[in-house]
Structure formats: structure tokens, C-alpha cells
Design a protein around this nucleic acid. Structure first.
Lengths: 109, 109
DNA sequence: GCAATACGTTAGCCGTGACTAACGCATTCG
DNA sequence: CGAATGCGTTAGTCACGGCTAACGTATTGC
């Protein structure tokens, strides 16, 4: 899964990101919110980690996964480029779409 | 391909959307910009049409595909919800992310 | 020490998405 | 007319993603 947008687009992974956005969660906590196996969740987390959207810190025998602010910023940037550099540039003369870039996206501390 | 975001996330389809954003193009025109077969492009356009992102109008023996403003607005709305309703709501107290919604997205006329 | 917990990892299944090659159908042109 | 163009459609391949079940591993608690 080399593509950042494709990785984040998958429905279950989107929900995982949403969940992790509320703060660090263990794998079992995350899996509790999904109808699939903990193994599936673990693999999804692996994909998200692979593209740098999440990371984890060990604490005892648990792994607290958390959103990686830098990765979320990159995701946000790619989504922004999808509209600005690639789409809105053709429509710039039509509506001059105002647009903000959220490179300062962060998890709650 | 029932999911709008997943449909739009596919790299080739993203590029197709970018290309169509510059105005209506025939299938062969689109296919000329890709290393894959015209058949593959045709199927990609089928997917994009299925989720309501593009449409086409016949003109002689050509099919001019064009971006569907309403569909693009829905895509934009879903992407916005991904950050606001689902992600930013957890971080709202942290940064109170400002956010715009572009429901008025349109193709150049 | 041993059992239980919280994971990751692997094998394997299954669906499906992306693709090509071939065909079929309209449309235009000669 | 027929040939060529511009498509869609289909069959069929291939790879891969998502998933489960089973197992292996570290950590905690008894």
C-alpha cells in the first residue's frame, strides 16, 4: 500500500483514524469498535503505520497507537493538492476558490 | 465500487478527474495521457460515472466526458467531513481548526 | 514457575479491482 | 454500400487487499 490517499481512503482505516484522533488507544480498544477481528485491525494499523499516519508506544504489554501529526499533515497536504494544484487550477478563473491549508494539524496533547 | 472516497482515491482515476477538470474530453483523448488501454480508461470512467463524479454527452461518434459539479461537491463534502465531523471534533478544543466547506464547486462554464 | 493477557505474524481463503485482448455496436466517411 | 473510427462490453488473467484462524512472543499476575 504505497499510496497515502488510497491507504487513508479505506472505510475501516478512516474510522480507525477517527478513533485514534480522540487520543491514543490500544489495539483491543480499537478492535472493540469494529465488527472484524483484532488481527484485521492490527494489519490495518500496520498499513497506517507504513504510510506514516500512525505510530505506537509500548507500555507494558499494551501498544498505544496514536495519530502521527506529521503524517496527518501530509495527508491533508495531498488532499489539498488534489483540489488546488490539480483541480482548482482549471477552475481558478471561474470561481477563484478560496482555500486553506492545514499543515498545522495536530493531535490533542 | 460503492464508496465515493475509495473511487476517487485510485491514482489513475484521480488523474482522470484532474484531466476532465480542464474541460470535456473524449475517451481517446483521456486514454492518450495514460499508459494503459483505452478499455481500462473506459472502465475507470464507468466507475467515476457510477459514483456520480462524471457524466458524458454524445456528440457524433464521440463521448465527451465531463466532471459532474454536483458529484465533485459531494466528494468535497465527504472529504471535509472526514476532517471536521470525524477528526477535528476531537481536536476542536485544542486548536479550533477553522474550516470551509466548498459546496459551490463548479466546472468552468 | 505457570496461566492469562496483549499483541504481532503467518498461512490461506475469497472477493474484487485493474488490466488486456477480443469482440460488437453505432457513426461517419469514402 | 463498405471501411474506418470511437466507443462500450465481455471474458479472462493477475495481483492484491481484507479477512479469519491459528500460532508465536513478550509481559503481567498468581
Amino acid at each position: 500500500m504505497p499510496d497515502l490517499l488510497s491507504a487513508a481512503a479505506e472505510p475501516n482505516r478512516r474510522r480507525i483514524l477517527q478513533l485514534l484522533a480522540s487520543g491514543p488507544h490500544t489495539v483491543t480498544e480499537v478492535a472493540a469498535n469494529f465488527p472484524v477481528t483484532r488481527s484485521a485491525i492490527s494489519q490495518h494499523l500496520g498499513v497506517l503505520a507504513e504510510v506514516g499516519l500512525v505510530t505506537h508506544r509500548k507500555q507494558g504489554r499494551q501498544r498505544f497507537y496514536e495519530v502521527l501529526p506529521d503524517g496527518m499533515a501530509r495527508l491533508r497536504a495531498e488532499m489539498d493538492r488534489f483540489w488546488t494544484d490539480e483541480l482548482a487550477q482549471f477552475t481558478a478563473d471561474a470561481h477563484a476558490l478560496p482555500h486553506r491549508t492545514f499543515t498545522d494539524w495536530e493531535r490533542p496533547t
